[in-house]
């Protein structure tokens, strides 16, 4: 094994790339959970976004259009979850699982003819002056546009929840749907909007996997990224800034283990591949062992069905 092959500048740059899909999915899911809805279908929406984005990008040659349609596909798919849980009052855990199964099936059906094809990926966007800085320039300021968009979404979500009236209503719906309903807020509409935002973000995240990170379509390519995004929301105790930290930490672990594999570590490749999942479990244990704090952070009505009796 030759560790000197690992270039620290490239390492940081690739951490940003590998963290972006999870970051997008996690920030969307955080908004959904803030509104009191637990959508376990992130994996299904991500992989649907991945396949739709890939198909559109290949047929039009425009990766950005792929991202837009992937976001729309994610939103439409999440709407099916929204209608089932909010209108038909189904169990959110079971419906979310169903959404994942539907998404996995749908994506492999749609993606079959596109397996192994190559697509045009997003160009690197060199930010003038900043990207010419030594070391830091290559690390942070020479990425494709989606990396910056994902960071922009994180800041926008943070500001939306903290400073706007609409953000306050969304949080109120998540903390106590009965009170929000009594005040005249449309609980179900707010939740449906949040669910669709989450779906769109997951779709973007999936498309980033198939259009930039890999860039190829393979069946089941999200490989649990959606579930990891869910874990990151818990890790972040429902705060936008910490979602960013969590996603980048996780991206770091993934990239590091890939680099170790590439550096010629032959023994136990499988043990390295399982490390991101094991570390996620460890982090979850660490977060939840601090029970008193973490139970206060979760939105009070998370996962509960709302049925207006009056």
């Amino acid at each position: 094994m030759d560790l000197s092959n690992i270039n620290p500048i490239l390492l940081v740059a690739s951490i940003m790339i590998s963290a972006t899909p999870i970051l997008l999915a996690a920030i969307g899911e955080m908004v959904v959970e803030k509104s009191g809805v637990l959508n376990l279908g992130v994996e299904g929406m991500m992989i649907t976004g991945a396949v739709i984005g890939f198909i559109v990008a290949i047929n039009t040659g425009a990766p950005l259009l792929g991202f837009v349609t992937a976001a729309m596909a994610g939103a439409v798919l999440s709407l099916s979850f929204g209608v089932l849980t909010q209108v038909f009052l189904s169990n959110q855990v079971a419906t979310g699982l169903g959404l994942t199964l539907v998404g996995l099936g749908l994506s492999s059906l749609l993606g079959k003819p596109y397996e192994g094809m190559k697509t045009v990926t997003l160009p690197k966007l060199d930010i003038p002056i900043l990207s010419d800085l030594p070391v830091v320039g290559r690390m942070f300021f020479s990425h494709d546009i989606m990396v910056y968009i994902s960071l922009g979404i994180v800041i926008a979500v943070w500001a939306f929840l903290k400073f706007t009236r609409a953000g306050l209503i969304l949080r109120a719906v998540g903390e106590s749907h009965e009170s929000a309903h009594a005040l005249g807020y449309k609980v179900i509409r707010v939740r449906l909007a949040a669910i669709m935002f989450g779906g769109a973000c997951a779709g973007l995240g999936g498309a980033y996997l198939s259009l930039v990170r890999v860039p190829q379509w393979t069946e089941g390519m999200t490989a649990g990224a959606g579930w990891i995004a869910l874990a990151i929301v818990v890790f972040a105790s429902w705060r936008a800034g910490r979602v960013l930290v969590g996603a980048y930490l996780f991206g770091g672990i993934t990239v590091l283990q890939l680099n170790l594999q590439a550096a010629g570590l032959t023994w136990g490749v499988q043990y390295l591949s399982m490390s991101p999942y094991l570390i996620t479990i460890l982090v979850l244990v660490f977060i939840s062992s601090n029970r008193k704090r973490s139970s206060h952070d979760a939105p009070a009505n998370l996962g509960q069905t709302f049925h207006a009796t009056r």
């Binding site: 579930w227 869910l230 874990a231 818990v234 479990i281 062992s289 029970r291 139970s295």
Partner: peptide, 8 residues
């Protein structure tokens, strides 16, 4: 620890 059994 009260860890979520779904994710683990």
């Amino acid at each position: 620890f009260g860890t979520n059994e779904i994710l683990v």
